[in-house]
Computed example of a mutant assay.
Amino acid sequence: MDDTITALGGDVYEIDTRMAGYSGITAGYLIMSDRPCLVETGTATSSQTVRDAIASLGVGPGDLATVVVTHIHLDHAGGVGDIAGYFPNAQVVVHEKGARHLVDPGRLMASARMVWGDRLDTLFGEMSPTEAERIVALGDTGSVDLGNGRKLTSHYSPGHAKHHVGLVDSATGDLYVGDAAGVFIPETGDVRPATPPPDFDLQTALDSISLFRALQPQRLLFSHYGPVDEVQDVLERSAEELNVWVDLTRQAHGEGMDLDHAVAMVRDRTRERYAALKADDLAERFELLSPAESNVAGIMHWLGKVSP
């Protein structure tokens, strides 16, 4: 089997998309049901890696039925247009608030370039447009037919981004959490928030985590990164980390700190919470996945709205 693929049981295969050449950054998941389904495409620059992994599992160009993304950020959905091109029969499923950006990615790419600058090309590449007639837009709940009575149900979870959904597989009880429960580092068991601007809202984010707990999934499948069996413990930790980051950023905001000083303070005060930061290779990956600057900027943006 291709070395980017890990069998997870229940006809689910994790695909390491090799984002920006790294291992263990972003996972896509292929559900090998009667109607094969890819959850998360990864970036545009990862699309050939993902295509080759799908092909090595025996799913040909005409066989993939559905591509579903939890949200439209480029590390999750940047490859949608390319994957849609490789698999011309696949429907593309996304929350209704993200659908138009897949059809015309111009605004999404422009705002990403403002954040990432020249690093955009190496980290993400350029999202290709997807034909509107191939897109299925989900409301706050919806379902994706996986064939033979199996389905993915979507659950609107907008704390991280207003176009975010979690997805539950009826056959396995797996919950695809996207970024709504943060970033998980399997080597150390660390969980860190993902709170980028402009959509972060603390109560909405905590409500999304509460919803995930109430769904009582058997397993969490993190886009960053991998399967987690300790469902309730990890979701509890996810909520705890959100509160820690918000409390510290609120303190910095209250003291009138600018973003750079706030980031330095929060980074310093949270360092001991994460074993991953003690290993150089993991620390680099952690910072790429859940950059302290992006997290603090997202919380500051929210604080500017709720307590200017």
Rank of each mutant, 00 (worst) to 15 (best):
P227N: 02
H95L: 04
D190I: 07
R285Q: 04
A84Y: 05
L289V: 03
D145V: 09
T66P: 12
L303M: 12
W302E: 05
V177H: 03
H253D: 12
E287V: 09
R51I: 13
L138E: 09
L152N: 04
S238Q: 00
D121I: 14
V231K: 01
R192T: 15
K278D: 07
V92S: 00
H76K: 09
D11H: 12
L64P: 14
T41Y: 06
R271G: 00
R192C: 08
T249A: 04
A27F: 10
V93Q: 01
F124L: 08
H301S: 15
H253T: 13
G10A: 02
F286N: 00
G117N: 00
S307R: 11
G298L: 01
V266G: 03
Y176R: 05
M1S: 12
L277Q: 11
R113S: 05
T41R: 05
I25F: 10
F200W: 14
A84T: 15
G139Q: 12
W302N: 03
H253G: 09
E240W: 08
A99W: 08
Y29V: 03
K162I: 08
I25L: 07
D75Q: 11
M1T: 15
D190S: 06
E272G: 15
G106I: 06
L120R: 05
A194Y: 15
L138K: 06
E287H: 03
S170L: 04
G9R: 12
F87L: 11
A275D: 11
D179S: 15
